[in-house]
Design a protein around this nucleic acid. Structure first.
Length: 503
RNA sequence: GGCCCGUUCGUCUACCGGUUAGGACACCAGAUUUUCAUUCUGGUAAUAGGGGUUCGAUUCCCCUACGGGCUACCA
């Protein structure tokens, strides 16, 4: 019990990292940090056919962005490497052989095409205790024949020999007691013909070798748990087996089923953490980062999709999550993803973060939008003024561009219908008065402007909108006087004069 | 089909036998902001159905229905 807590996130590098994957990382991370344990990233690249170049780096980048950096990984190193299963290939065969020797597994010589035909004939075909006697394997075949096939180098796989009528039970940290009948599971392949292990063997061997104490994965793995438990029992003993937790799935917002990349395209929201470009199809799958989400909000939103601390609190920092998270409070049922709520989390975080924290991201965004930031201090004041009206980062572009350069377009239609000589005169006079202002602060400006309006027999409402359009270009933004104050005397007057001329 | 997991407002969820079933998102209405957004106030809205157990079930058990997952030499 004194052993160190060790958890792992074990993705296969086959494409982008979607919401469910990030949440699995997050729960792993939170648990590890809370328990003072290690968080390991292991790359499960045993399927040569599905390997996608760049996917591993992409996963690393996502973790970096989210702030969920592993203690051990292919690039961070560690005492239990290598951390890519493809580089561990030689490790697995002896364990598979041991299982065969001890009668828990067997050689199977059926070719993929033979199995395909079998399944075409009977759609419900399972390679199991019911059928293995009729197949080409070391149980059905005579020992001499098996020996001969092996010596001839005929390709084979190693399958687990599922026992008959054995109850396989374990306690899931989230679901409690779960039971299976061993007769119901098929004889899963443990070692493939190419010498690579399947997930079923590799996950057990590596979790053992890497001293993993708690294994968290998606609910889709629950049905194969009995296979893994049996392999644990045969190879290392159940007392060494990590504690399991099968996380609920993240579901499509409307209909049924697991959330997939396609849903994002169809419904118009990202499902990946960051942009992912498929190297072969060049197809782009949009990411939350590029959409303008803050990592804090993204993580927060994901954490709440399936977990809460029992109070009404919804906004949590990563640090708070580390202290408050508990696997026992994770839900049993899947959650439909709600993009509206995800945006709400981001808005809350933009409001919560101070302008200095927001500044680097906003600055980059504006610069990408062709706006040059000359003073960070000025940018910070702009952010302070507009951040409450921004839900996603790109909103800062529209909301703050006019602070850095004069509007390119003016919504003159908002002024023209009610524009007249009296107002023209008023603004001409206002310019003169503004020039005389001893100090340029919002409160003084408002007082002065309203007094001038009153003196000219104008309701301030009649001239407020024109002033706004002159400074901002449109009918939006914070208080006009706050804008004018920040813009400065010179720029404010310049913009008023410019629009006056247009009218 | 078989096996496994699940089921509280439209959505995310609280409740761990006794509550007018609470909160959040979304939606609707009002207030504030002489812009837009924010913000504030209020409102509509849920225990899948049927049996048990119990003085009492959202809560525990069973059945049904529905939803989801798995059923590859993929993870």
């Amino acid at each position: 019990m004194s052993e160190k807590i060790r958890v792992r996130f074990a993705p296969s590098p086959t494409g982008g990292l979607h919401l469910g994957g990030v949440r699995t990382v997050l729960y792993n991370y939170l648990f590890a940090r809370q328990q003072g344990g290690d968080f390991i990233l292991r790359i499960e690249d045993t399927d040569q056919g599905r390997f996608v170049a760049g996917a591993e780096q992409y996963i690393l980048d996502c973790l970096e962005w989210c702030g969920l950096v592993p203690d051990e990984s292919p690039v961070h190193g560690g005492a239990y490497g290598p951390y890519r299963q493809s580089e561990r290939k030689a490790i697995y065969q002896p364990y598979a052989d041991q299982l065969v020797k001890e009668g828990h597994a067997y050689y199977a010589f059926d070719t993929p095409s033979e199995l395909e035909i079998k399944r075409a004939d009977s759609p419900n075909f399972q390679y199991s205790q019911a059928t293995r006697g009729d197949m080409k394997n070391s149980i059905a075949l005579a020992p001499d024949r098996v020996k001969q096939l092996l010596e001839e180098g005929v390709p084979y796989v190693i399958r687990i020999k599922m026992p008959v009528g054995e109850e396989i039970a374990f306690t899931d940290m989230i679901r409690g007691a779960v039971k299976f009948d061993s007769s119901q599971s098929d004889d899963k392949v443990l070692l493939k013909a190419d010498g690579m292990p399947t997930y079923h063997l590799a996950v057990v061997v590596d979790d053992y070798l890497m001293k993993i104490t708690h294994a968290f994965r998606g609910e889709e793995w629950l049905p194969s748990a009995p296979v893994h438990i049996l392999v644990w029992k045969y190879l290392f003993g159940l007392d060494k087996m990590p504690q399991w937790a099968h996380l609920p799935l993240i579901l499509k917002p409307e209909g049924n089923g697991k959330l997939s990349k396609r849903d994002g395209d169809r419904l118009g929201f990202p499902v990946f953490a960051m942009n992912w470009i498929d190297p072969t199809t060049k197809e782009l799958a949009k990411g939350f980062r590029e959409r303008g989400f803050l990592p804090e909000a993204f993580i927060n939103m994901l954490a709440m999709l399936g977990w809460n601390d029992g109070t009404a609190q919804e906004i949590f920092s990563l640090q708070e999550l580390v202290t408050k998270f508990s696997m026992e409070r994770v839900h049993r049922s899947g959650a439909k993803f709600d993009y509206e709520k995800a945006q709400w989390f981001n808005h809350e975080w933009i409001k919560k973060l101070n302008p200095v924290q927001l500044e680097p991201a906003v600055k980059q965004l504006l610069e990408n939008g062709g706006i040059n930031i000359t003073s960070d201090a000025y940018a910070t004041r702009v952010i302070e003024l507009v951040k409450d009206r921004c839900t996603l980062l790109p909103d800062f572009l529209e909301q703050s561009a006019y602070f850095f350069e004069a509007p390119k377009q003016y919504d003159l239609d908002a002024i023209r219908p009610k524009w007249n000589d009296q107002k023209q005169l008023f603004f001409a006079e206002a310019v003169l008065q503004f020039e005389l202002m001893p100090q340029w602060v919002a409160a003084d400006l408002e007082k002065e402007f309203k007094e001038m309006a009153a003196a000219s027999q104008l309701k301030s409402g009649e001239v407020l909108m024109p002033l706004r359009v002159m400074l901002v270009g449109g009918k939006f933004g914070p208080s006009v006087f706050d804008i004018a104050a920040l813009l400065g005397k010179e720029e404010t007057i310049k913009r008023i004069k410019f629009v006056l001329q247009l009218l």
